[in-house]
């Protein structure tokens, strides 16, 4: 069964459907949260909150506004970004940076995973963006920076960053569109 159908059942309190939904989305949710949050213990915590929230608020999913997977991953991304931002605000930034500087542990782990083909294509398509498009998109999406922070880090005007983000995503769509 697809995530869309499962979510409807989950909204009705079907725990078996939730187990199926879990099997479908836990990998993407966990992977995304870990990519953004980085710290393993915190990633697990956030992923757990997100997955539980799927159960609690399944009734809020509105098929008219996008696919179930987009809804799930949007939720996961928001929670992950919230966590990263509050950690930064709490002055843990240096700590995180230090951890990150400790090497390619995460990317290495990610390599073991089977999102295989899709991962490869996304990577390839990201490579086809201009450097500024790619940085604008990934600093925001994978590192949780606001577009204002991205502008600051890249020393670009706000308007330029917004445009790069949109162009970057659109170009990604065109590139990936040929794959599916």
């Amino acid at each position: 069964m697809e995530a869309d159908e499962l979510l409807v059942l989950v909204a009705g309190g079907d725990q078996k459907a939730f187990e199926d939904l879990y099997a479908l989305v836990s990998g993407p949710v966990f992977g995304l949260v870990r990519r953004v949050v980085r710290d393993p213990a915190q990633s697990e915590e956030v992923a757990q909150e997100v997955l539980l929230e799927l159960w609690r608020s399944a009734a809020r999913y509105d098929p008219g506004r996008g696919t179930a997977l987009a809804w799930v991953l949007t939720l996961a991304h928001r929670r992950a970004v919230d966590r990263v931002r509050s950690a930064r605000a709490a002055g843990e930034r240096e700590l995180r940076m230090a951890r990150r500087a400790n090497g390619p542990a995460f990317d290495h782990v990610a390599e073991e995973v089977e999102a295989g083909l899709e991962r490869e294509w996304v990577r390839r398509c990201l490579d086809r963006l201009t450097a500024l498009q790619r940085q604008s998109v990934t600093l925001a999406y994978y590192d949780g920076y606001t577009y204002r922070e991205v502008a600051e880090r890249l020393s670009l005007p706000l308007g330029t960053v917004k445009t790069r983000m949109r162009d970057g995503l659109t170009r990604l769509r065109n590139c990936l569109g040929g794959v599916a």
Binding site: G27, P28, L32, R34, L73, T74, V113, E114, A115, T138
Partner: peptide, 18 residues
């Protein structure tokens, strides 16, 4: 809605077993 689906492609590619 369209841009979100694009972003989700970025998410999907990070999948890792929980």
């Amino acid at each position: 809605r369209a841009l979100r689906e694009d972003a989700v492609r970025l998410a999907w590619s990070t999948a890792a077993p929980a």
